[in-house]
């Protein structure tokens, strides 16, 4: 008989990722409605010291699976040990963060357990005793509520940074259970890992893009954009005018004849918003425009606009975001 909510505690380099706390808070909420427990599974090498802390965030029990072979994520090893654990414990639901790792792992585990999986959910609740997930589809143009009525466990990945984290209860500890791993057959060899140090993400893959236009006035001012980008972990883009003027390389041009991008957040600074530019970025989820011309076209497409001198706005914005992120 399935019981309990299991959460995948994602860690990297010895640090628990924030989405884990979001999952625990959500897990606790639904577990209490279902009258069940919340447990977490923590996988890696030398990670047991992290297990206790999860209690403060709501984990009643933490399964720790440690092994040298689990130091870096590999689909095979992680899927093997996690699927084994899930099979043994038969939870009602197994939740993961919708990160690259969580998404990768969830699909394998779901199939191995022959159950359903809802990915990239933005809400989770209990309705009529059933766990219901909300997820956007069609790039957010429609929303579904969905459940997995029969198959167990119910599986879902939850979009990071969406669900709230409850205040940790200081001193509350979790029962830590060490689980001996059966790594199994690992078919993939990692030859090399390229960590992004300070380099910003690829323009076309970035979740956030900070982009400048003619209003930047010169290449030296792109530093303002770069500072903002670094605070946001964003890529830097530019309109054609900047590329033409030779301020920035063609490779970062956004627009009809440049790159087509659709990040979650697109900050357009000093860009007037000609259709050729809009064609390359209008599918961005949230568009922010900073332009001193209140009549600029870009404001028609923007979700948030600031009419003002970007040389004054950008530094303050960078500082404020830094404060929020701290």
């Amino acid at each position: 008989m399935a019981k309990g909510i299991l959460v995948f505690a994602e860690q990297r380099d010895g640090k628990i990722k924030k989405v884990t706390y979001e999952l625990l808070s959500a897990g606790k909420k639904i577990a209490s409605q279902l009258g069940e427990e919340v447990s977490a599974v923590l996988v890696g090498k030398g990670v047991s010291s992290l297990a206790g802390g999860l209690g403060e965030y709501g984990a009643d029990k933490v399964y720790v699976i440690e092994n040298d072979a689990l130091e870096n994520y590999t689909t095979d090893a992680y899927a093997n040990v996690v699927a084994d654990l899930v099979k043994q414990n038969e939870p009602t639901a197994f939740l993961l963060g919708c990160s690259i790792t969580g998404r990768d792992l969830a699909a394998q585990v779901a199939q191995r357990l022959n159950t359903g999986l809802l990915t990239d959910c933005i809400n989770v609740m209990v309705e009529n005793g059933q766990i219901v997930f909300t997820r956007p589809i069609y790039a957010g143009k429609a929303i579904i509520n969905a459940a997995i009525p029969e198959a167990r466990p119910v599986m879902a990945t939850i979009r990071p940074n969406v669900l709230p984290v409850d205040e940790p209860q200081a001193g509350k500890s979790a029962e830590v259970v060490n689980v001996p791993p059966n790594i199994g057959n690992v078919r993939i060899t990692v030859k090399d890992v390229i960590r992004q140090v300070s380099a910003r993400p690829e323009l076309t893959e970035a979740d956030i893009i900070v982009s400048g236009g003619r209003g930047m006035k010169g290449p030296e001012n792109f530093k303002l954009l770069e500072d903002l980008a670094d605070v946001l972990g964003a890529a830097v883009g530019a309109s054609r005018a900047c590329v033409d003027a030779g301020w920035v390389p063609l490779s970062i041009q956004v627009g009809q004849t440049g790159k087509t991008v659709s990040p979650n957040l697109y900050i357009a600074a000093g860009i007037s918003g000609a259709i050729q530019h809009l064609a390359g970025m209008s599918s961005s989820k949230v568009i922010v425009a900073v332009n001193k011309d209140a009549e600029a076209n870009i404001f028609k497409s923007a979700d948030f606009g600031v009419v003002g001198d970007l040389f004054e706005v950008l530094p303050v914005l960078t500082q404020e975001i830094k404060k929020l992120k701290a």
């Binding site: 009809q256 004849t257 087509t260 050729q276 064609a279």
Partner: peptide, 19 residues
Amino acid sequence: GEAQLAFTNMERNSNPWGI
């Protein structure tokens, strides 16, 4: 590549910007 984008946009949305 820009021509390909324009073509695809015209095919799918009957305008070169793909709106």
